[in-house]
Design a protein around this nucleic acid. Structure first.
Lengths: 129, 129
DNA sequence: TGACATCTTCTACATTTGTAGTAGCATTGC
DNA sequence: GCAATGCTACTACAAATGTAGAAGATGTCA
C-alpha cells in the first residue's frame, strides 16, 4: 500500500482523530493546505478504493476511519525509501542518519538510551515488516 | 530536487560510476529492470532537464555525470519522508526505527559504536540539511 | 414553502510519470 | 558504396496524481 503525497495529508489528518467527517478533515487540513472541499472528498474516495480507509454513513453523512494504520504506512514508506535510496538495507540508512544528520547531543543521548532499552528486550523479536 | 522512482534507478546506476554512457547505464540496470534503451535515454534527458545530471559529448556520444550528489539526494528524500510521514521531526523517525524495525543485535552493536564515535566528534557541528 | 447551505456522486482536466517507438545521422564491416 | 548497427532527437501515449466544478438530494431557518 503506497500513499501519494496528498493521500498522506489526508491520512495524517485522519489518524489524528477518527472517525471523522470530510468536513472535519477539511478543517484540520485547512491550516496546511487549501483544498476545495470536493478535492478532499475525491481523495477520500480514492483512499477508500484502495482500502486504506473505510467509509460509513452516520445518518446522511459519511464518516471515515483508517484501515491502514499509521505504523504500517510508516513501515511501507520507510521500506520504500530504503530500497530506493539506501541500497535496500537499514545499515546505510542508519549510517546516513548518524553521519549526515548531525544529531543534536540530546538526540544522541536519547538514541543511546533507547538503544540500551531495546538491547535489553532483544529476545522477543517479532518477524518483520 | 525530488526524484521519481525511475529516476532513482538511473541515478543509482550513475552514482555507481560516472561519467557513463547511456549504454553503460543500460547495462548496469539490465539486471534490475528491463527498460528499452530509449526509455533510459528519456530518463537521462529528464534528469538533465532538472539539472540532476549533466550531459557532455565525448566525440559523438553523450556521457552523463551526476550533478546532484547521492548524499544530497538522500538528504532530500529523507527530509521528504520525515515531513510526510514522521511529523517533520527526526525524533519520531528514530523512535520508529528502534521500536518497529527490530534491529538485529549486530545492527544495534554497530549503531552503538557509530554513536559513540560521533559522540566524540560532536564539537564541530555543521548546520544542517 | 421557498431560498440558502451542505452533502454526495460524477465527471473533467492538466501535469507528471513510466515506457517506448520512429526517423535521421554516423560508423563500420564488407 | 551500401547494408547493418548504434546513437541521438523527437514524439507519443496510457496511467497516476492533483485539483476541482456541476448537478442533484436534503436539511434548515425565516
Amino acid at each position: 500500500m503506497k500513499l501519494t503525497e496528498a493521500e498522506w495529508q489526508i491520512m495524517n489528518a485522519l489518524w489524528s482523530g477518527s472517525p471523522a467527517t470530510a468536513r472535519q478533515i477539511a478543517d484540520r487540513l485547512g491550516e496546511e493546505v487549501n483544498w476545495a472541499y470536493t478535492t478532499i472528498k475525491t481523495m477520500l474516495t480514492r483512499l477508500s478504493d484502495k482500502n486504506a480507509i473505510k467509509e460509513a454513513k452516520a445518518g446522511k453523512v459519511s464518516v471515515y476511519e483508517p484501515i491502514l494504520t499509521r505504523q504500517a504506512a510508516r513501515r511501507n514508506a520507510l521500506k520504500g525509501l530504503v530500497n530506493q535510496a539506501f541500497d535496500g538495507a537499514f545499515g546505510p540508512l542508519m549510517h546516513f542518519l548518524l553521519e549526515d544528520q548531525k544529531l543534536s547531543d540530546n538526540q544522541k543521548e536519547e538514541l543511546m538510551k533507547a538503544l540500551e532499552q531495546t538491547e535489553g528486550g532483544r529476545e522477543q523479536k517479532k518477524e518483520g515488516v
